[in-house]
């Protein structure tokens, strides 16, 4: 198993380097310094900035500096620090980009991870029931609800959620149960106040899509011969659905969940913006709108890395759930 994982990691290193190279080249097509300083900037200011960021170096040298920085640590004031994170943000002057990104990870995760867990559990359960009652009333009700839920815009859920779920509710109970906006992680019960409402909204929004996908997976499994065999053995409905079917449906389920993992870390842009949560999505949006080149560069590189990591993890999980997947 470990040899298999190591091999998967080694295969993906050149892929990652290739992606970083392309991303770095793409970020430099439009000169980031002119973009940031504006067209009236002096040549001196331009040259100073170019030098400080190392943008005057050939692309290959910059590539080497950046990629080696991703895997090296440097002593700064007696503390070992990640080298790629030491570059300074342009818009948040003097702040190392590593700190900026690091601070944004936790708020993002405290929304996206619970949302994913909740959505997956609920939608897989609904999908199993729906597939089981295929063509009958419970199935139809659940599928119509799913399509209905999908057809309403994300923004509608956010605005109505903020109004009814936070504003009106708080008026009624005369306190703050759900905050309309904001994020503080140092109060007791902060997660319920600031995160639960966005989590619920995100769950409702994604549930429709997930349920329909998982239902299709389950329906395919219900038609398989081994299901007839299990029924002929006298296995109970519950055992057939949650042991026989679910175990076979794990491959598509894992694929679906793993694809969303990098997006979890990157946060949900709309939720973070509307609820004022200082997560990764908002950080990336801010970096782009303020033309903060070092932050943007680090974020896209991280995102690419996360993506490859989930690809590797997906393969590992396949091998764990399906005995037919060979480790060779």
């Amino acid at each position: 198993m470990w040899a298999y994982i190591l091999r998967r990691v080694l295969y993906n290193i050149p892929v990652y380097l290739g992606i970083i190279f392309l991303l770095m080249a793409a970020l430099r097509v439009n000169d980031p310094i002119w973009g940031y300083l504006g067209k009236n900037a002096s040549h001196e200011a331009y040259a100073a900035m170019e030098k400080s960021m190392g943008l005057d170096q050939p692309l290959l040298v910059q590539f080497w500096d950046f990629t080696s920085g991703l895997v090296t640590f440097e002593e700064v004031d007696g503390v070992s620090r990640w080298k790629a994170g030491l570059a300074e943000s342009w818009s948040d002057k003097g702040r190392p980009v590593g700190d900026l990104v690091g601070d944004a990870v936790w708020p993002s995760l405290s929304i996206t991870v619970p949302a994913l867990v909740l959505t997956s559990l609920i939608s897989i359960t609904i999908a199993i029931l729906s597939a089981y009652y295929r063509g009958r009333l419970p199935d139809k009700v659940m599928m119509v609800s799913a399509v209905l839920g999908m057809s309403i815009s994300f923004l509608v859920y956010i605005i109505f959620g903020q109004y009814w779920g936070a504003y009106v509710l708080n008026e009624r109970i005369g306190g703050e149960f759900f905050a309309i906006q904001g994020y503080k992680s140092d109060e007791p019960g902060w997660w319920v106040t600031y995160c639960l409402l966005p989590v619920l909204i995100s769950t409702i929004v994604t549930m429709g899509y997930d349920t329909r996908f998982y239902r299709a997976v389950m329906v395919e499994e219900t038609g398989r011969d081994y299901i007839t065999t299990a029924r002929a053995k006298g296995a109970t409905k519950r055992k057939i659905m949650f042991v026989h079917m679910l175990k076979n449906a794990m491959i598509p389920i894992i694929t679906r969940i793993m694809i969303t993992l990098p997006f979890l870390v990157m946060g949900s842009l709309l939720l973070e913006v509307y609820f004022g949560i200082p997560g990764m999505g908002r950080a990336l949006l801010q970096a782009i709108t303020t033309l903060d080149f070092p932050v943007a560069q680090l974020l896209v590189a991280l995102f690419a890395g996360l993506f490859l990591l989930t690809v590797i993890l997906t393969d590992v999980f396949y091998a764990l759930v399906d005995p037919r997947v060979r480790l060779q």
Binding site: A232, K233, A235, V243, N248, V321
Partner: peptide, 29 residues
């Protein structure tokens, strides 16, 4: 089913659950 009346199917390739060991599948009954 499985107790008084049992059935064998024509396709042994697909009639067994691919992700459970044969022991588990016999033991289940």
């Amino acid at each position: 089913r499985g107790n008084d009346i049992a059935m064998i199917f024509q396709e042994p390739m697909t009639a067994l659950n691919p992700v459970l060991t044969v022991g588990e599948q016999i033991a289940e009954t």
